[in-house]
Amino acid sequence: MAPSLISITDLYKSFGDQKVLDGISLHVEEGENLVIFGRSGTGKSVLLKCMVGLMKPDKGTIVIDGKDVVSLSLKELNVLRKSISFLFQGAALYDSMSVKENLAFTLSKNSKFTKGEIIKKIDWALDSVSLLDSKEKMPSELSGGMRKRIGLARAIITQPKLILYDEPTTGLDPITTKEISKLIRDLQQQLHTTSVSVTHDLICAQIISDRNIVLKKGKIAVEGSIEDLMNAQDPFLKNFFGSEIIEHGDD
């Protein structure tokens, strides 16, 4: 059994009276690809944001690569963040920078790579997502699918240990959803990254996940493979997965 890269223990987070995370404990092994399901507002994105220190939990520990995110100083947290990438829902590309500058940004700030080495890495990352010809474009010139691909290129350019995906296929048509999901899976296999993805999308989960969990009222309701979740007799899960149109990826 591979060692745990992420160990979350008794995590609590509330906004006012609203409990969002209610004592979540979770382990993700190195190289594993975990998908988190759940209805809107069940704390999936909050969990991801707590993992990178964008939000502070009320109680509990989040240990990533042996370091407790909650108790780290900002300086220590930034060292840890260099080994983590986050693909945001809308890709969060920097509007004022070209695609090339978006990709170069983190490398030029956080590494000692020469200009030539950075250009090589940009070309490699863009080639990996098949958008090498979009290097000079501005984010406003890109379609939704292209933005996700560029976001993915920006996430892999630092060759992180862990990638967190916040709804990587939201707002995309089924064909683009399959393409992006396969791209994510191929890059996971190629780079041997660990990933945690939040999604509502069964097509995406079927392609990228090794294990799945479903959050309900701030707790983990069930855990297993996609087939386990779809065949579960629990009325909530039946309702949740029954309303999806299942379409298997043509691997």
């Binding site: 990178v52 964008l54 963040r81 260099k82 986050f86 945001f88 509007d95 940004f105 983190t106 700030k109």
Partner: peptide, 9 residues
Amino acid sequence: QIDAMEVSA
């Protein structure tokens, strides 16, 4: 985008 910058250290 501000969160993305923060996450990138």
